Each structure stands twice: as C-alpha cells, then as structure tokens.
Amino acid sequence: MIQQTLELNSKAGLLAIPVTQLVQVASRFNSDIFLTHNGRKVNVKSILGVLSLGIPSQAKITLEASGQDEEEALRQITKTLASFNN
C-alpha cells in the first residue's frame, strides 16, 4: 500500500465533470484506490462517493492505492488531479 497527500489547486474544487474523469482513470486499474478528506474515506472508483466529500478548492486530500498496479494508479490519479488546476 502506498499513500500520497496533496493539495488541490483547482478554483472550484472537485465537481461533477472532474470527478467523472477521475473515476474513469481510477477504473482502469485493478488496485483498490481510496481518497480521504476531512477524515472521510471513499473509493475513488465511485462517483457518488467522491462527490459526497464535497471537496473545496485548496483542500488537502490523501490518496491511497493497494494492489498490483498501485504505483501506476497513484501516478495517473495524481496526474489527472493536477490537470484540474486552474
């Protein structure tokens, strides 16, 4: 299992369109991938789960991946989140 904490720099936070893109990327991997914000942990492969966190801009989040492709999964999810920065 690997973890990474980062800060979202998106002005709008994580809204429906970016979350959909994030879930699509996460779904390509076999690893279990979780996102934690304010003590709540959800599966990144769940659109409703990620949206339920209501992640605002400038939020600190922690990503966690566990499985055979965990390193590549975390790398791609981090890259996708970085693409949302305005």
Score class of each variant (00 low, 15 high):
residue 50 V to W: 13
residue 25 V to S: 00
residue 8 L to E: 01
residue 82 A to K: 14
residue 60 K to F: 06
residue 57 S to D: 04
residue 13 G to L: 03
residue 58 Q to I: 07
residue 50 V to G: 05
residue 43 N to R: 05
residue 51 L to N: 08
residue 84 F to H: 08
residue 70 E to P: 03
residue 78 T to K: 12
residue 64 E to N: 10
residue 70 E to C: 14
residue 2 I to E: 11
residue 77 I to F: 10
residue 59 A to K: 01
residue 63 L to Y: 11
residue 75 R to M: 03
residue 20 T to A: 15
residue 43 N to L: 02
residue 58 Q to N: 11
residue 48 L to E: 05
residue 66 S to V: 14
residue 55 I to W: 00
residue 17 I to G: 02
residue 38 N to W: 02
residue 43 N to S: 10
residue 60 K to D: 01
residue 12 A to G: 12
residue 74 L to K: 12
residue 60 K to L: 12
residue 58 Q to L: 07
residue 73 A to P: 03
residue 85 N to H: 12
residue 10 S to W: 03
residue 66 S to T: 07
residue 81 L to M: 00
residue 12 A to H: 14
residue 47 I to L: 14
residue 2 I to N: 06
residue 7 E to L: 07
residue 78 T to W: 02
residue 44 V to D: 12
residue 41 K to C: 07
residue 41 K to L: 10
residue 55 I to P: 00
residue 73 A to N: 10
residue 8 L to Q: 01
residue 69 D to P: 08
residue 63 L to T: 09
residue 73 A to S: 09
residue 70 E to R: 07
residue 67 G to A: 03
residue 67 G to S: 11
residue 58 Q to V: 02
residue 76 Q to D: 14
residue 64 E to F: 15
residue 55 I to Y: 09
residue 55 I to F: 12
residue 61 I to R: 11
residue 74 L to M: 15
residue 50 V to E: 03
residue 61 I to K: 04
residue 62 T to M: 15
residue 4 Q to H: 15
residue 23 V to W: 08
residue 83 S to W: 06
residue 33 I to S: 06
residue 63 L to S: 10
residue 7 E to W: 00
residue 81 L to P: 03
residue 23 V to P: 06
residue 70 E to V: 00
residue 54 G to W: 09
residue 22 L to H: 01
residue 72 E to L: 15
residue 16 A to V: 01
residue 64 E to Q: 15
